[in-house]
Simulated scan of single mutants.
Amino acid sequence: MAKILSHLKKLDCVLIAAVLFLSSFGLLMVYSAGYPLGYIKYDNGSYFFMKQLQWLLIGFIFFGAAAFFPYKAYGKVIRFLVKFAFLLLILVLLPMIGVEKNNSQRWIHVGSLIIQPSEAVKLVMVIYFACVYAKKQRYIANFRKGVMPPLLILAAVFFLILKQPDLGTAVSILLSCGAILLCAGIRKRHLLLLGTMAGTGIAYFAITAPYRMRRLTSFSNPFQDENGDGYQLINSYLAIDSGGFWGNGLGKSVQKLGFLPEAHTDFIMAVVIEELGAVGLLMMIGAYLLMMFRGVRIAVQINDPFGKLLAIGLTFQIMIQALFNLGAVFGLLPITGIPLPFVSYGGSSLLFMLISAGILVNLSSHVKRRKKREAHLL
């Protein structure tokens, strides 16, 4: 008991507070944004709220477990995790197993639950890259031996997710792993080469698929196709403009009444701004920035290469998703379908975001324990 209490004292309360704020605030906004659709589709306005609450409770259990589970143990099972990730990505593409929605096959049934495997793969790839490149520090300057092997795994994951198809998630994984590579200390010319190859590949896949090309053109000028590809973004603009600084009041969004598609998922931030104004936006951005600050601080202070790269990867994974989502809502980036971390409706995203945050809390506890030992030695 004393050992548990001692561990609790070393938890990062600021980081935990940011996670609790975002996830609880997200639950509230899912209730508000999803109420009309839940009532129309399921004759239950609380439908999406109850589903999200179920996932949030499950997520909190895993968050607590990840906060206490020693992060170094992930390195011992990483081969199994990678194999399991590949199995999931293959299963989701099989006709009798994968669940298709909106012309995409990204989900599988697990009992009564629907899981999106790519959300688990995001976390697995961050752990894998952090583990492998921590071990390759001695020969990281050698491209063939120190850099190349994990990139083959990443390429395979990228193409399997692209088959779903889900370019947005594939790119977010690429960027998270790229952040780990950058901090692992690879040569600048190797980084430039890889960045050029990745950028060229992403551009190719973006412009060769007609629906992706339409997304690129519609986000740059949605008013060219007001009733087609630009419809969602235009209604997002209307919601944001209506909210102003203080908002129209919680629950008083007009756009969620059938005008704004995906109001409780990808475009939940538009509803937040319409109801709570710029104040709501600033609160959420503040929470994300606080998480980023704590994550980078953990990475700087931890003296273990694996822990350092893992903290960087997890932090950037969360921030990249937040940036992709907010950029789409404001028309600064193409719509990718990536949910807002901890906030958007979606069980798989919420669960694995909470696990990622739990690992960050564990890394922070490791830093505090090391500092305490050093203080005793002095």
Rank of each mutant, 00 (worst) to 15 (best):
A2Y: 15
I4K: 02
H7E: 12
L11C: 14
C13F: 11
A17E: 15
A18G: 11
L22N: 08
F25R: 01
F25T: 07
F25I: 10
A33C: 09
P36A: 00
Y42W: 06
L53G: 14
I61V: 14
G64N: 10
A65K: 06
A66E: 10
F69Y: 14
Y71I: 02
I90H: 08
M96T: 10
R106M: 12
I114E: 13
V121N: 02
C131A: 11
F143S: 02
K145C: 08
D166W: 12
S172I: 11
S176R: 00
A179V: 02
A184M: 08
K188S: 07
K188L: 13
R189I: 13
H190L: 06
M197H: 05
M197S: 09
G201D: 10
I202S: 02
F205H: 05
R215H: 09
E226W: 15
Q232S: 03
Q232N: 06
G243D: 01
G249A: 05
K256S: 03
A263G: 05
T265N: 04
A287H: 06
Y288G: 03
Y288A: 00
L289M: 06
M291N: 06
F293H: 01
I302E: 11
P305Q: 09
L309R: 02
Q317V: 00
I320E: 07
P339A: 03
P341C: 01
F342L: 04
V343D: 11
V343M: 03
V343R: 00
Y345A: 00
G346D: 12
S356C: 00
V361D: 09
V361Q: 05
R369Y: 15
R370K: 14
K372H: 09
